[in-house]
Amino acid sequence: MSLLLCGCGGRPLSEREIVRGILFTRQNENYSVCLVLANQQEEKGGTGQNKIVAAQGRTPAQALEQAEESLYGDVYYGLLDLVALPSDTDWSLAQEIGTLLYDNAQPAPELSVFLLGSQPVDSWADSADRLYNGMKSIERTYKIHCGLQQLFTQNNVCAIPAYTETGGYDYVILAQDATPLHCSGVTEAQLAAVLCGQTDRLQGSYNSGNAACTARAQVLMEDGVVQLHLRHVELKSLSPQEKPLQTVLAKELQRSFATLYEALKETGTDPFHMIFWQNVQGVSVSPSQAPTFEVVFE
């Protein structure tokens, strides 16, 4: 009985359908879901690519159920490591799919959540394996991780990295009863991810593509001042322009922080946990006053 309750009973893994990823998209009034399955025939001369199974439904739950029922073996979610939500996901849909996965799939803690890119998915057969591997590559390269539990950390907002095929990743902040806030680029998307605690890296181009940076990032708040500490910084010019690279990067980060803060203030949400840290430090800040933001190079 203990083995069954822990999910260790029943068929052996070799006879189960091992789900690695679940990709959702919206098609008109319906939802489409693709299960990315481990190819257990690889050692027997298989292609080495993941297997895929897709289905549609009026709701995400119905689409997932249809996909599960089309499989031969028992569905096993214990090794699930990635979920992709539709590109047009809002806060309520993120909560709906997140709750569905907690209730049905019960995924491992290592699971990462992404949004699909804006490019439409015409065929899962042509796209699923590429999308799954692309998002896993982004997670490894940029050290970005949004776990399933982070959809529920705050009751009116969540933030999710978004897949992009052009390099790096975008970042989307989903606030309840508000239009999703889309961020892109190192000094905006990656800054937002650092402020949300989902990465400690800045890596990519800035200054309109004329410079590149790599740095470890840590956020501290002291006396109401938000400090972005950058360590192991490597800056490189990608054009003949003679500009102080540190100064340009700091100014872009400061502008992005001000833009993000003003946009979030209109939604009444606090994905960066500013209010929490201000209360911890006993700092009284007017709601209309943006915190001071500093970039510290170490």
Rank of each mutant, 00 (worst) to 15 (best):
Gln218Asn: 14
Arg20His: 13
Met274Asp: 11
Phe276Lys: 14
Arg26Leu: 10
Ser205Gln: 15
Glu29Gln: 14
Met135Ala: 04
Met221Pro: 02
Leu35Glu: 07
Ser127Asn: 09
Met1Cys: 10
Thr247His: 13
Ala193Arg: 03
Asp177Asn: 15
Leu115Ile: 09
Val233Leu: 15
Cys213Lys: 08
Glu222Ala: 07
Ala61Cys: 08
Ile173Gln: 00
Lys251Trp: 08
Ser256Tyr: 10
Ser239Lys: 04
Glu110Leu: 05
Ile52Asn: 01
Tyr31Trp: 01
Val157Gln: 05
Gln254Val: 04
Gln198Thr: 11
Gly7Leu: 06
Gln106Glu: 09
Leu253Val: 08
Asp270Ile: 00
Leu93Thr: 11
Tyr206Phe: 13
Pro161His: 05
Thr59Gln: 02
Pro291Met: 02
Asp126Thr: 05
Leu64Cys: 04
Leu23Lys: 00
Ala55Trp: 02
Val219Phe: 08
Gln95Glu: 14
Leu148Gly: 01
Ser127Gln: 10
Leu4Met: 10
Ser137Gln: 12
Gln40Ile: 06
Leu5Met: 09
His145Phe: 11
Leu249Thr: 07
Ala84Val: 07
Thr59Val: 05
Ser256Ala: 15
Leu253Ala: 12
Gln190Phe: 14
Phe293Val: 00
Ala290Leu: 08
Leu71Val: 04
Glu43Ala: 13
Arg26Trp: 06
Arg201Thr: 14
Gly185Trp: 07
Ala108Phe: 10
Gln281Ser: 12
Leu245Gln: 07
Val194Asp: 00
Leu230Val: 04
Pro180Glu: 06
Thr247Leu: 11
Glu242His: 01
Leu230Phe: 14
Ala178Trp: 10
Leu151Val: 03
Ala211Thr: 10
Val296Ser: 10
Gln150Lys: 07
Thr166Tyr: 13
Ala63Cys: 12
Leu82Thr: 07
Leu116Gln: 04
Gly197Tyr: 12
Val295Gln: 02
Val285Phe: 05
Lys44Arg: 14
Gly134Val: 04
Ala94Asn: 00
Gly209Ala: 08
Val83Asn: 01
Ile160Leu: 09
Glu43Lys: 14
Thr247Asn: 11
Gly21Gln: 04
Gly147Ala: 14
Gln41Glu: 15
Ala54Gly: 00
Gln40His: 13
Ala263Leu: 11
Gln119Thr: 15
Gln40Gly: 01
Ala211Val: 07
Tyr132Thr: 11
Ala55Asp: 11
Gly45Thr: 03
Leu151Asp: 01
Thr99Arg: 15
Leu195Pro: 02
Phe276Asp: 11
Phe114Gln: 06
Gln254His: 12
Pro86Glu: 02
Tyr102Val: 14
Val233Tyr: 13
Val75Glu: 08
Phe276Pro: 02
Leu37Ser: 03
Gln227Gly: 04
Pro60Trp: 00
Phe24Gln: 00
Leu230Thr: 03
Ser70Lys: 09
